[in-house]
Design a protein around this nucleic acid. Structure first.
Lengths: 226, 226
DNA sequence: CGACCATTTGATATGGATCAAGCGATGTGG
DNA sequence: CCACATCGCTTGATCCATATCAAATGGTCG
């Protein structure tokens, strides 16, 4: 694990580490001013499924995935959270998904009880909490719509979404592996790979390195985004 | 477009516009004591995708489906709401799904602005709104996990879920058609039908009539529920 | 009884999974 | 500094679950 982290240091520095703060991250009001910062190495668990949801989190730098492993070993990635995104705010008092750092990440950790206590007195905080849950709900609804599409459509939708979130122009630097993408899209790693290759052959995208994808024909992607 | 036709139906405009004064019926939470009751015939639209989310709803009797129609005509059913369930509380101020009565249904219609205004002053109401959104979030997350399973697993999971919600013993009376089920599970109507037939041939279930299903071997279904 | 709609059943096609190599970049040990 | 092992990814061959296309059956209502 340490070795792999070192091995990936170069591209990480090149891509993730130097992303300029181009896209403004959602503001979370009073929540922005709370919590303590923690660092997680690549692939480190932030919390596990079934654990008490004692904290809520905000990505300061790096990227996080949430996921659930089914009884037979299949893994479903619930979402990817990038710098500025909040995660870990669950309906009940137990985490229904696990969360891991995709790359070395800094995360703001906020005590849930402190926030809910504050919400009792401050309706603004209460509204923020509700908004946050609502935003997550919409994201998960969109994920459902993604999962009923064809492989090509799923990949196109994914690329456009990531482009919106991390893009500098048309170049998209992905923090996550093909396996992460596959598990997010409900496909196999082979299908994701083949789909990207196919899109490249159509000049819809370029794949200069496996983690870097350049959108060359957004119209074609949008057509698949149906 | 089909939805447009339904949406413009005159009975609907008339009824939404003329919500009669509240007849409060004493129940539990603050949300329960608000709103006006309305009746919707079978297949009537309650609200349409893209409309302002002016109301939130509670099923009094009957059943409701929410759904979204994709550009190419595919329909995804987001959820089924039975007596007692609340629906229509959306993150933003526009409905992202449409809602229709599956059978003749009575629905309590609650003005959203009234509730949110109340939530500003009453933290209990605020908490209830948050809980409601959180419960919906968990439901949608479970739906994602369903959509990555095999056809047999999806149908088994669906039957067990419905059994928990409507069951009198092992008999499940489904309000919805095979097409509704298929669009909820992300399958075709043929696959749903074949899967039920197959389960019947294994004596896992009985299908005395197409809308009535008797669970004969829950252990077998639970095994598929993986 | 006959028309209509929902559902089931049958035959075939196909998209994506699975199984199995191959490849290229990166770090390791000689 | 160079062969080598490892890892993430791609490519190839085949299989299979589910979709698609088509027809038969059954239930409901005039």
């Amino acid at each position: 694990m340490l070795t792999t982290a070192v091995r990936n240091a170069s591209w990480k520095k090149a891509s993730i580490g130097n992303v300029p703060p181009t896209v403004p991250r959602p503001q979370n009001g009073p929540l922005d001013m709370m919590g303590a910062q923690m660092s997680f190495p690549r692939n480190a668990e932030i919390y596990g499924e079934g654990e008490a949801a004692e904290y809520i989190y905000r990505v300061v730098s790096g990227s996080v995935r949430t996921y659930k492993v089914l009884a037979d070993g299949r893994r479903q990635v619930g979402g990817f959270y990038l710098a500025g995104d909040m995660f870990g705010l669950e309906p009940g008092d137990e985490h229904t998904f696990s969360a891991e750092a995709i790359v070395e990440s800094k995360v703001l950790v906020i005590k849930r009880s402190a926030v809910t206590a504050l919400a009792e007195r401050d309706t603004e905080v209460a509204r923020q909490l509700w908004n946050l849950t609502g935003r997550e709900l919409r994201r998960v609804q969109d994920h459902i719509l993604l999962l009923i599409k064809s492989a090509h459509e799923r990949v196109a939708t994914f690329l456009l979404e990531m482009a919106e979130r991390v893009s500098a122009g048309n170049a998209v630097d992905l923090p996550m592996s093909r396996q992460d993408i596959a598990d997010y899209l409900g496909l196999t790693i082979e299908t994701v790979s083949r789909t990207l290759t196919h899109m490249e052959s159509l000049a819809t995208i370029e794949v200069p390195s496996s983690r870097r994808i350049v959108l060359r024909n957004r119209a074609a992607l949008n057509r698949l985004n149906a």
